[in-house]
Design a protein around this nucleic acid. Structure first.
Lengths: 135, 135
DNA sequence: GTAATTGCAAATAATTTGCTGGGTG
DNA sequence: CACCCAGCAAATTATTTGCAATTAC
């Protein structure tokens, strides 16, 4: 395991360029499908697979962000009290944090932009204590 | 639209009870499949569909939490600078927030539990300014 | 007895991947 | 001319749903 990644030299393509342009020009945090529909008129031959492939390349290059939990499956929590989570990027473990709830943030955001905030979620990412020791 | 929800009176079942017990007894934030595998030995006839159905019922009853982005598809962001997000529960829009990054939190969490924190994400949920006005 | 719940299997839905041919460096 | 990239379709994966039988209240 931990095989060294083959260094891929990415090339330009009209599709990749347009996808990035579209993402840069909107504040709407689109889905892959939305980008596909947006691009289809000017590139009738475009396929959804190409959009996904390019999004992953752009992600890897750090040109864009993906807004999700990282893992593809939902996780459930039997503890419904307000608390935050940490996910270890190495072992994938999700753990609860003792950090007290920061209710002030909700008010701050309301004052800033006028949205009515019901609650918020915070997830910290990094390497857990265990993985730090075993490496 | 906006049809009034038929009020369902949930009944007890061994499956639902055990699923909740398992969730309450672990801190590992399991996936649906993990719960299914855990329960299978004592309930050989159990099906994965039942696990999913009960998790959704428990969610609706507020007995458990789901850790994810709510929507099932990824959204992408062309802005890679550190910023937080807001999602409107009514119209589904995701927008950027002007709230400055709270780097102190990463140190706080490290001091608290010893995990090495690389970064964190915050998502606020509620009703956006627009939806507030149009209702 | 009414209607929620189950197991099973088939259906969805988002995303990934194999293949073949075309285009970039 | 090597090898990355596109388009297409088929495969994967997590989750949902239809159905008939079962069970809770």
């Amino acid at each position: 395991m931990n095989a060294e990644k083959k260094e891929i030299v990415y090339r330009k393509s009209k599709q990749k360029t347009r996808i990035l342009e579209i993402l840069r020009s909107t504040k709407s945090h689109p889905t892959a499908d939305w980008i596909y529909e947006k691009l289809k008129p000017e590139m009738p031959a475009l396929s959804l697979g190409t959009v996904y492939r390019n999004l992953n390349i752009l992600l890897e290059q750090g040109e864009i962000l993906r807004l999700d939990f990282g893992h593809t499956f939902d996780r459930f929590d039997g503890d419904t009290s307000r608390h935050y989570h940490f996910m270890c990027e190495k072992c994938g473990e999700v753990s609860d944090l003792e950090l007290p709830p920061l209710n002030i943030l909700d008010k701050k955001v309301f004052n800033l932009c006028g949205h009515k905030i019901k609650y918020h979620k915070i997830v910290f990412y990094g390497i857990c204590k265990n993985c730090l020791q075993n490496s």
